[in-house]
Each structure stands twice: as structure tokens, then as C-alpha cells.
Simulated scan of single mutants.
Amino acid sequence: MTQSGNPDYQVGDRSLFRTEQDPRTLKPYDTCLVGIPETLVRVIDVGHYDPPMDTGRLPRPHTLLIVLPVERVPQD
């Protein structure tokens, strides 16, 4: 799920991806730009795995970052 650049658009609020237009206006076979805008984040946790973590995908990650956008307050 994506969200548009419209700040009032709430659906998909957790998605990294943004579309050039409101996704609710798109129809099958329409085209649009999708991207991930630069975001200032706060590092919440860093995980190091030796051996690398088995996620079922390759390459297996050896480092995992947990981040939140700076404007979001972490809930303890």
C-alpha cells in the first residue's frame, strides 16, 4: 500500500512508498510514479547477527536497523 504526497491522506500511513497522485484516483492500467522520499529517522535499535539471520531470503542479513521517523515518538 502506498500513500500520496497529500498530508491529509491517512490510508497507508505506515508505508514508505509515496505516489505522485492520490492512489484512490488510480484505475487499472494507469501509470504513476512511486518512490521513497528522504526521511530523517531516529535509530531505535541495532541488531548484529553472526551467523547471519535466516529469513528465507538471500543474502542473509547480518545487521538489522530499527528506525522511526524523527517526528514519531517511540512507545515504550
Rank of each mutant, 00 (worst) to 15 (best):
D30T: 05
V34N: 03
E71V: 13
V73E: 05
P28Y: 08
D50T: 08
T63C: 12
I66Y: 00
I66R: 09
V70A: 08
L26P: 01
T25N: 09
D50V: 14
V34E: 04
K27I: 05
T63Y: 01
V70N: 05
H48D: 13
R18Q: 14
V73Q: 07
L65I: 07
F17E: 11
L68H: 03
R42Y: 05
V73F: 01
V67S: 00
Q21C: 05
G35I: 06
V41C: 09
D30S: 05
P23C: 06
P59K: 05
V70S: 03
T25P: 04
S15K: 11
P51Y: 06
Y29R: 06
E38C: 06
T63S: 07
V46Q: 04
L65E: 03
Y49R: 01
R18A: 05
V43D: 01
P28E: 06
P69T: 00
L33F: 15
L58A: 10
P69F: 00
D13I: 12
E71Y: 10
H62A: 12
T19C: 11
V11Y: 14
C32E: 06
P61I: 08
V34C: 03
P61T: 09
L64T: 15
R18G: 05
G12V: 06
E71N: 14
L64C: 06
L64E: 12
V70G: 00
P37C: 02
I36A: 01
P37E: 03
T31C: 11
L33I: 12
G35Q: 09
V43T: 12
V70Q: 03
V41I: 10
T63L: 06
V34H: 09
T63V: 07
R57E: 15
T19Y: 04
S15L: 08
P59C: 00
T19R: 02
L40S: 09
P23V: 01
R60V: 09
D13H: 09
T19F: 11
P69C: 01
S15T: 12
P23Q: 02
L16H: 13
P61W: 05
I66M: 07
V11I: 15
P52V: 14
I44E: 13
H62M: 02
M53L: 15
V73H: 02
R72E: 00
E38H: 09
V46W: 02
P37G: 00
P28L: 12
L65K: 08
H48Y: 12
H62F: 04
E71S: 08
V73S: 02
T63H: 03
P59N: 03
T39L: 15
Q10D: 10
T25E: 14
R24M: 07
V41F: 02
Y49A: 04
D45E: 15
I66D: 13
E71M: 10
I44Y: 01
I44P: 02
Q10G: 13
T19M: 14
R14E: 05
L16C: 11
T39C: 15
R60S: 10
P59W: 00
R60N: 13
T25V: 13
P69G: 00
V70M: 09
E71P: 07
H62D: 03
G47H: 11
E71H: 14
L33M: 15
